[in-house]
Amino acid sequence: MSQQERITEIKQLLETKHELKTGYLVKHFKVSNDTVRRDILKLVQTGQAIRIYGGIAALNLTGVPEYLTRTHILSTIKIAMAKLAAQLINSPGLYFLGTSTTLVQMGQYIDQNGVTITTNSIDNVVSFIQNRKLKVEIIGGTVDNLNRYTYSMTALSEIRNLTFKKVFIGASGITAQGAFVINENDANLIRKVIQQSQQVILIAENYKFGNQASPYKLCDCQDVDILITDKSLTKSAEKWFKPKLRILRV
């Protein structure tokens, strides 16, 4: 059995058991402790589960963690994807970055003068203002304390007067129906930003494809111009997107 097959089965087990001990997984798969530890590390690093003493646990009953939970997940994959995304900010202009634990890491890797970053993410502002080459603007409104973004009906109106060179979005689930997130207000704002953007860049790890746990749609897959991910898409997933989709892999 391959690592990906074991990881898929571990995720299925977590849906019912919620916690799994390392010893249980060793016996279940008939593999070594080191093999199970590598499987656990893969799940934790990609944000699919959390490490607990002696094993692994589900993030929550839906499999989709809230933003504050995800900020504590250290992922080399997220850093590599952030570096790739930062390279796409390669000319002066106005860019929008959504709320994402991957996107928030882009700030230190952007090396372009004349760039203005607009965002609704509090953590994006904190991160990006440390890069002195960037001008940073935050969308005003009410603060969602748990997911750390701002939202208001006024902001939706103001966005209609802006044109963004590129919008960078994250998603907690991607299906044939589109890209989805778990927060309604965030989805409402990002949908409006996408309408005002010349190019749409989606950043999503491979495990999020086929995940239907998130209810609020950001966009159709056909709206995406560039996809940044960590593994090749399946043939069926490739068909969700337009033929000219540009895929960047870490």
Rank of each mutant, 00 (worst) to 15 (best):
Q3P: 01
E5L: 12
E5A: 12
K11E: 04
K11S: 07
K21F: 00
Y24P: 00
L25W: 02
V26Q: 01
F29P: 11
S32Q: 04
N33R: 14
D34C: 04
T35K: 14
V36L: 04
R37P: 02
R37C: 01
R38Q: 07
I40Y: 03
L41M: 14
T46L: 08
Q48V: 06
A49F: 08
I50H: 05
I50K: 12
R51N: 10
Y53I: 11
G54I: 00
G54L: 02
G55S: 02
A57R: 12
A58Q: 13
L59A: 09
L59H: 02
L59I: 14
L61T: 14
V64S: 15
V64W: 08
P65C: 10
T71Y: 08
A80G: 09
L88N: 06
I89T: 00
G93K: 00
L97Q: 01
S100W: 00
S100H: 02
T102S: 14
L103G: 03
V104D: 03
M106N: 01
G107I: 04
G107H: 03
D111S: 09
T116G: 01
T118Y: 13
T119F: 01
T119L: 11
N120T: 03
N124W: 11
R132C: 05
L134Q: 04
L134R: 08
G140H: 05
N145L: 13
N145V: 15
N145I: 14
R148E: 08
